Amino acid sequence: MTKIHLYFVPGLAASKEIFKNIVLPIDQYEVHIIEWLIPEKKESLTSYAQRMAAFVTEENAVLVGVSFGGVVVQEMSKFLELQKLIIISSVKSKQELPKRFTVAKVTMAYKLLPTSIVSSVGDLTKFAIGPRSKKRLRLYNEYLSIKDKDYLDWAIEKMVNWNRNEVDTEVYHIHGDFDAVFPIKNIKNANILEGGTHIMILNKGSKVSKMLQNIIENH
């Protein structure tokens, strides 16, 4: 039996360990995790996505991105022939971004975020998953492994300034109705996980796994 090759891209600054609770049948799936590259100086998102796409070496693969990784995989897909493109806890266009991102873009407030010191404390985690729960902050902070200032500055700028207008109709979207970073009120045409937060990849891994498998096998 030919296995389905599944490539994952994690959330902003997160390590591959964020996928530890995603469990799929090992006789059907071969899982690959693409870890973050350090961007070149002033590198465009398109150029970065092309470099990341080079890690997808299997034909007819499924590509999955979480949060900012969901934005990156949509850009990567321009350089790939995929079986499926799936995003989790992410957005499909700038229209789905929350107002605070728009304000940050207009005021360029994101440039004031002191990533050189933020990377070791909770502020970056709050940016990555929202401000609401101390328990969730602690949980997600365990998986924030990318502390490189150039990467963090670059990633935050690219997330805030993502300018896609047209939604790619080929994208499958899994989203939680309690996501504090990308509120459900802005999200259209998604597979909704009830009670899912922005870190449901960690704390609702079995349910996310089932939703992934359903999309891959039945759509």
Rank of each mutant, 00 (worst) to 15 (best):
L80A: 09
V64W: 05
K147D: 12
S89L: 12
D123Y: 13
D177Q: 02
E59S: 12
I216V: 04
N21V: 06
W36H: 00
L6F: 01
G11V: 01
D177S: 03
I184F: 04
V62C: 05
V103Q: 12
K210P: 06
L152N: 07
S120V: 14
P39D: 02
V181C: 10
K149T: 15
K207W: 08
G122M: 09
L12Y: 05
E170D: 15
F19H: 00
K158T: 09
A54Y: 10
D153T: 10
L63H: 07
N186L: 09
S44K: 02
I34W: 02
V121R: 06
E40R: 09
W36T: 00
I215A: 03
N21T: 11
H198Y: 02
S90E: 13
F8T: 13
R138S: 15
N189D: 08
P10Q: 03
N163A: 12
F178D: 15
Q83E: 14
K111P: 07
F182L: 10
L37V: 05
Q95K: 13
K111C: 06
V103T: 15
L97N: 09
H175W: 01
S93C: 03
V118K: 08
G130W: 00
L80K: 08
R138F: 12
Q95H: 14
N191E: 11
V9K: 02
I33M: 03
G196T: 00
G196C: 00
E75P: 11
L139Y: 12
P10A: 03
K210L: 06
V9Q: 02
R164P: 10
I4C: 02
S93W: 03
Q83C: 06
K207V: 15
L63Q: 12
W36Y: 03
T107E: 14
D177V: 01
W154P: 07
N191A: 07
G176A: 01
L45T: 08
Y151A: 04
N189F: 04
E40N: 06
A49I: 03
A180M: 11
N214R: 12
G176R: 01
E59M: 09
N141I: 07
L212V: 02
L139H: 14
S93D: 06
M76Q: 05
L80V: 10
K3P: 03
P131H: 13
G195N: 04
Y7Q: 01
K94E: 15
M1R: 08
M159C: 08
V9L: 01
K41G: 05
L212S: 02
N186K: 13
V23E: 11
V23T: 08
Q95R: 13
E58M: 13
L85G: 06
